[in-house]
Computed example of a mutant assay.
Amino acid sequence: MEETLVERGKSLAAPTIFIIVAAFHFLSRYIELNKKKKGSLNAKDDQLRSEIKELLKEASSLSQPSTFAQAAKLRRMAAAKEKELAKNQEIQKKEVKSSYDTQEKILKISNVLAYAVLIIWFWRMPVATISEELVQPFGKMLSWRSGGALKDHVTVGIMPWLIVSARVNRFICRKVLK
């Protein structure tokens, strides 16, 4: 009875590790994609844009030589508001970037800690067993640091399983989250 529970626990180890690795990859990809998106628009920026548009429209309507000075004044006001808008957007971009940088650092640290815990936990223990015919040329590589060998089966160690899981999940994340 105890052997079946141990075997059942080992059989759940590989999918559990794969899901943990997938979660870290999806979170990092999600943060990366949100970081690339532009910062959210706020009401102040919208108001500045509408004021700039109105000033430029008003300045273009004043095309007579007698109203040239007034049109130039309106254009200078629009240029000042454009500078203010650019400054606001730059500040907002820096704030968004710093918050995402903090999230990325926390995720990387927790990723390293999770990998370390998994490696320590499964160091000399096989994560999964696969039929030898399925992994014929790579059997020795997959069974690295996994303990003993079984008859007609290859045991998969934690290091090769983490590498394979990471590669597969990175590929899936890039295809799913574009």
Rank of each mutant, 00 (worst) to 15 (best):
I20Q: 05
I19S: 05
E95Q: 15
M125F: 07
Q64E: 14
K97H: 09
P126C: 07
T4K: 09
N42L: 04
K35A: 13
A86R: 14
A22L: 14
A13I: 01
I120C: 09
K94L: 13
K108I: 00
G148C: 00
P65G: 04
V154D: 04
S146L: 06
K83S: 11
Q64N: 12
P126W: 02
S98F: 01
S50K: 15
A72S: 15
L118H: 06
V135T: 08
S50Y: 01
P160L: 03
L162Q: 03
A80R: 15
V135W: 06
S40Q: 14
L48R: 14
R76V: 03
Q103R: 11
I109K: 15
P160W: 11
K178T: 00
V6E: 11
S98I: 00
I158G: 11
E54K: 15
T16Q: 02
G157N: 03
A116G: 09
E3H: 04
K38L: 04
P15Y: 07
I19M: 12
I119K: 07
N88E: 14
L62N: 07
K97C: 03
K73C: 01
A22C: 13
R174S: 12
R8Y: 05
K38V: 00
K93C: 01
Q70Y: 03
I163K: 12
V135I: 10
R174N: 15
E2F: 07
K175V: 05
S61A: 11
L118W: 05
A149N: 10
L62P: 04
N169Y: 06
Q89T: 08
P137S: 00
K81Y: 10
E133D: 15
Y100H: 09
K87P: 07
Q89F: 05
K38F: 03
E3I: 03
V117D: 03
K83G: 12
R170I: 00
S66Y: 09
G9T: 05
A128G: 11
A116S: 15
M125V: 11
T155L: 04
N42V: 05
L41W: 10
A78N: 03
N34K: 15
T102D: 01
R167W: 01
F18M: 02
R49V: 02
A72T: 14
S28M: 08
Q136F: 14
I17Q: 08
M141P: 02
A86W: 04
L107N: 12
K178E: 00
K140G: 06
W161F: 15
K37L: 04
P65Q: 05
V164Q: 05
E7A: 13
I31A: 02
I119P: 06
R174K: 14
A116D: 01
I52F: 01
Q70A: 07
N88V: 00
K87S: 10
I158L: 08
P160G: 10
S61P: 02
R75A: 08
V112M: 12
T16C: 09
L107K: 08
T67W: 06
P65T: 04
A43D: 12
S99F: 10
W123L: 08
K87F: 05
K87G: 00
T4Y: 14
K81E: 08
F122V: 06
G148H: 07
V156I: 08
T4D: 09
S98R: 14
L5K: 15
R8W: 12
T129Y: 10
I172A: 12
S61W: 04
R167Q: 03
R76A: 06
E54Q: 15
R145I: 01
L142E: 00
T67M: 13
S143L: 02
A78I: 01
W123H: 13
